[in-house]
């Protein structure tokens, strides 16, 4: 008799718990899951949008399309850095790859600077800039909007007087961060281990 009572109590308890779980999940599930963006857009969101063409494509979006089709490898984007490769590997479910040996080397972030005394106002760099970060008009001095410059270096090649140089973005007080914790390694005496 006691066994039957116990069984009944346990049964009721389990039913009550199941009800709880169902109600809880109903609360969580009410917002419908967001529709996922197409794969190309999700890849494009990871790419750094420098539009520099170092990957061999005409910009970040074409590279994203090539990746989505599986036509190119994920280790061809130097501005994205290793973190970018890791994100791409996770999204595309591929292995992490080190940078391709023939890919251009990684550089610190830099912005273009026009030497205003040498600039002849030829507008070639304005046509080359993929993000419209250079201002100026024909036969007038040009200047770079440093905030908008992605550091793609595409304006360097067309300049007939070589007046554009890349200036690395300095580490200011605003870029400070706590150093990653370094765990001190203590020397172990040779006699302490068997």
């Amino acid at each position: 008799m006691i066994i039957i009572m116990l069984r009944l109590v346990l049964l009721l308890l389990a039913i009550w718990l199941l009800g709880k779980v169902l109600r809880r999940s109903a609360q969580q599930l009410t917002p419908a899951p967001a529709t996922t963006a197409p794969l190309v857009e999700r890849i494009d969101a990871i790419l750094p949008q420098t539009q520099c063409g170092q990957c061999g494509h005409a910009g970040c979006h074409p590279y994203a399309e090539a990746l989505a089709k599986g036509e190119d490898s994920i280790n061809r984007c130097p501005p994205g850095g290793e973190a970018g490769i890791r994100k791409l590997a996770a999204l595309l479910q591929r292995d992490y790859l080190p940078f391709a040996p023939d890919a251009p080397p990684q550089k610190p972030k830099a912005v273009a600077l026009i030497d205003e005394r040498t600039c002849i106002g030829c507008t070639l760099c304005i046509q080359a800039c993929p993000v419209d970060a250079i201002l100026g008009s024909a036969k007038q001095m040009h200047t770079v909007l440093a905030d908008e410059c992605t550091g793609c270096e595409l304006c360097l090649a067309p300049c007939p007087v070589d007046c554009i140089s890349m200036r690395p973005v300095g580490e200011g007080a605003g870029d400070w961060r706590w150093g990653y914790p370094v765990i001190a390694i203590q020397p172990v005496k040779s006699g302490t281990r068997p």
């Binding site: 069984r7 049964l11 389990a14 199941l18 779980v21 809880r24 999940s25």
Partner: peptide, 20 residues
């Protein structure tokens, strides 16, 4: 996780019920 919990509880209920 909720699905696993729910299925586990459902199994508990079924086994108890059947043994009763």
């Amino acid at each position: 996780l909720p699905s696993a919990l729910a299925m586990g509880l459902a199994t508990t209920i079924m086994l108890l019920c059947a043994s009763s």
